[in-house]
């Protein structure tokens, strides 16, 4: 198990009910972590509509997660 810090924005923040949390997870990739959270909290967005960011950079879904990292899942953007 590793401990990660997660920050939620927009629709994911509303569906999770909090803006940030720290949790222990058996997930070893950002993909596994999103799938775990989606199952637990009923996120409406499938993973192929979301991007992952670790420590303030976009990463691929198969990027290994390490203890203490900051993870953000990015719903479809809509600036402008």
């Amino acid at each position: 198990m590793i401990t990660v810090h997660i920050q939620y924005f927009a629709i994911l923040r509303e569906q999770r009910g909090v803006a940030r949390e720290t949790l222990s997870t058996p997930a070893t990739t950002t993909a596994a972590l999103y799938d775990e959270l989606r199952t637990r909290h009923g996120f409406s967005l499938p993973r192929d509509r979301v991007r992952a960011a670790v420590d303030e950079s976009f990463v691929a879904w198969d990027t290994p997660l390490r203890d203490g990292q900051n993870v953000v899942f990015i719903p479809p953007v809509a600036g402008g």
């Binding site: 924005f9 927009a10 629709i11 509303e14 409406s44 967005l45 499938p46 509509r49 960011a53 990015i74 719903p75 479809p76 953007v77 809509a78 600036g79 402008g80």
Partner: peptide, 20 residues
């Protein structure tokens, strides 16, 4: 990564591009 939530006249709201 910027997101937009619209508030409609009928009281409904939606996060743009996030519909499923």
């Amino acid at each position: 990564p910027v997101w937009k939530k619209e508030h409609y006249a009928d009281g409904d709201t939606a996060w743009i591009n996030c519909a499923t």
